[in-house]
Amino acid sequence: MRVLMHRARGAPRLGFLADPETIVDAADACAALGRGADRPLVADAIALAAAGDAGLALARELVASAPAETRLPLAGTPLCAPMRPSTILCTGSNYREHNAEKANTPLSAKEPEFFVKTADCVIGPEEAIVQDPRLTTKLDCETELAIVIGRPGRHIPVAAALDHVFGYTIVNDVTARDRQVRTSPEGVTWYELGRGKAFDTSAPLGPWIVTRDEIPDPQALALRTRINGEPRQAGSTASMIWSCAELIHFFSTSFTLRPGMVIITGTPAGTAWSADPELGGRWRPVPGCVKPTRYCLPGDVVESEIEGIGTLRNPVVAGAG
């Protein structure tokens, strides 16, 4: 099932993709089917995730039985981010190919890189990524698989970790490289993962959440990034150093994972950073992809695609100079 938020009658509303061309509006379908008392279960994607099997059973009933007046065409219906995560737990340096193309810290690939983004970073499909020159002149994009937590837990064993997943979506981990990468006079590299990673519009999310039952193996998905139609990244989640299950276990040692939390899982090779020797980039050919010649600029269009989920598309616009 594909769970989304669409804008109708001036407000974001939960919906489900009934087929490749049709959205079912959750609130309207509840009303039409006399299920008004169950409306809180489908108030938004976080409520649906927290409702567990009961929420998914209701969603499937709505999709199967909703009358025509509760259905909307996907084409022309504006989509919002499918959720506003309570917390976005992030790992970097999690693909071998990406580590080979960039400057690394002493801990790169030795343990999961841990940083956080907030709900304030999130935008949805077709919303604009802002390139603010007062923050960065080296704006980069990274297509990443995002895990949406559905069942709470702490110190979750790896073997049980995927049982805590509600679904998966796409995140573009937009990064200010000139804020991220630091090098000491002695040549030691470290990352500033506050200003480099967490800022307005730095977490495009969507276009929808695909529930766990439709992605039985999250370690077998192809990822691609296109900028202005040019292929920049191409990889597979099979190349993760730490799997989705291992990352859930890792983050659950620090936090009680709760419905609505999101874990993002790193990116493959092909970033603009790889072609920037000033910041330690070491570009290597990526089959089928074009070597970057610059970072993102206003007027660019970024498409992040993951097999089994879809494509997240966002333009880049200029911020206040």
Rank of each mutant, 00 (worst) to 15 (best):
M261P: 02
E305T: 15
L297R: 15
S304D: 10
E307G: 10
W273L: 13
T293W: 02
L297N: 12
T311G: 00
G266E: 10
W283R: 06
R258Y: 11
G310A: 09
P268D: 13
G310Y: 08
I264Q: 00
G280F: 07
P259A: 12
P298M: 09
G308W: 05
E303A: 13
R284Y: 05
A269E: 12
C289G: 12
R282F: 00
E278D: 14
A275S: 13
K291W: 00
F255N: 10
T256W: 12
G270A: 11
G280Q: 03
T265L: 04
G266T: 10
P287Q: 11
L279H: 13
R258Q: 15
G310S: 09
C296W: 04
L279V: 02
I263N: 03
G281H: 09
I309E: 02
G280N: 10
I263V: 14
F255I: 00
D276V: 01
A275W: 05
D276K: 01
G281C: 09
P298V: 10
V286N: 08
D276A: 02
C296P: 07
T293Q: 14
E305S: 15
V301T: 15
E305V: 09
R258A: 14
V290P: 08
T293M: 08
G308Y: 03
G310E: 06
G280Y: 07
G280C: 11
E303Q: 14
C289R: 10
K291T: 11
E305R: 13
G288M: 08
G299R: 10
C296E: 06
I309W: 03
L257R: 00
A275F: 00
T271H: 01
P268H: 09
I263Y: 00
M261E: 07
G270D: 08
C289P: 12
T293A: 14
L257H: 03
S304K: 02
C289W: 12
K291Y: 00
R284W: 00
I306H: 06
V302C: 12
Y295H: 15
G260L: 11
G299K: 10
I306R: 07
E278H: 11
R258F: 04
D276T: 01
S274A: 15
P277V: 07
E307D: 15
E307V: 11
M261G: 04
E278I: 11
E278F: 10
W283E: 10
S304R: 02
S304W: 04
T256A: 15
C296I: 05
P287Y: 09
D276P: 03
P298F: 07
G266P: 07
G308P: 06
P287H: 09
L279M: 14
T256E: 15
